[in-house]
Simulated assay, not measured.
Amino acid sequence: MGQARRKEKQPEAPGPQAPPAQDTSPGEPAGHVAWKKPEGLSGRGWAVLLGVLVLLQFPLLHYALLRGEAPTTASLPYTQDFGDPGVVQRDFFSTGGLWRVVKGQLLSPGVKNNPLWLQAALPPNVAVEFDVRSESPEGDIKVELFGDGTDHASGYVFIHGGWNNTLSIIARLDEHGASLGTLQAQAQRAAEKRGGGASAGLVETGVFKKDTHMRVEARPYPVKIGQTYHWRIERRGSLLRWSIDGRPFMEFDDPLPLVGKGHDRFGFSSWEAQLYFDNLRIEPL
């Protein structure tokens, strides 16, 4: 009887490998990978990024830093019936908006406060007349006077039927500034605090300064769509008078009139309303 064969011992199959140990901070669960701050841009990368930003903003930087006084291509007295479409390019300037002459009238197609400035220097005492109509239900007829020839609200803004045809204003440096009534109330309170019969004048109390942003408000008749109005705005000394169709509309006696360089231009304007202007006349007084 032969001997029983010895069963050869088979090698064991390898079991699943344990994952390599990972560094963890005390209190962190196993398997958590600590966040590492990514590497930042190199010096060259920052230089490239800066160059791209400057290139993209170059028009704005040029406008803000290198612009000079608004140019002058027209003189007073000035009259314009907009019979020549080329007059927009020749006598006016704007930073935006598709200003153009249509059938002998100047169209302001809702230019979002990008006035069309006449390139003529105005004297302190002047009269401005023109015809205008709104083809939009919100009314919102608007012009700017004694501005700087480039920027909206750099002088006085005259608005008939603004804020959805509910309010008319003469604004000084800001359509949304404090009302004249608010400033007068502040001046009265300041005078009462001083006592002893102190003056309640706007300038005397320090409420009104050279750079004060404010507006005079009124709620007379609204703008009628499609109706042509004849405007006349004049300034004599410190007094601004505004009439429509020969009737007094609003006025403002500015304690510190905006005059001199930066306050000697006239511009047509609009926000979203479609306006047509015609028969412009400007003459010194």
Rank of each mutant, 00 (worst) to 15 (best):
Q227S: 02
L56D: 10
F252W: 12
Q89S: 15
V126Y: 02
S168A: 05
R247P: 02
R100E: 02
E204W: 06
E175K: 06
S94K: 07
L118A: 09
Y156H: 11
K103C: 03
Q186Y: 04
D254K: 07
E144S: 07
A47L: 15
Q184R: 13
P284G: 03
N165H: 01
G139W: 03
Q274T: 10
D131N: 09
W271P: 00
E175S: 05
K37S: 07
E234F: 11
L180C: 00
E204Q: 12
H213P: 02
V126W: 04
G149A: 03
G196K: 14
L55N: 06
A191Y: 05
T79H: 08
V207N: 07
A185W: 02
S75D: 14
A70P: 11
L116F: 06
G139T: 03
W46M: 14
S154A: 09
K210H: 08
S134M: 03
V101M: 03
S154N: 08
G162N: 00
G237W: 06
R6K: 12
R6D: 08
K224R: 08
V128I: 15
G110E: 09
N125I: 08
Y221T: 07
K37H: 08
F58C: 11
L65W: 13
H263E: 08
L167S: 00
E283S: 14
I169S: 01
A13M: 08
A120I: 03
E192W: 11
S269W: 01
P124Q: 15
L76E: 07
D131T: 07
Q10I: 00
V87Q: 04
I170D: 05
W271N: 05
G2W: 11
A30K: 10
H176I: 00
Q3V: 12
E283M: 07
N114E: 09
R189F: 03
Q57C: 15
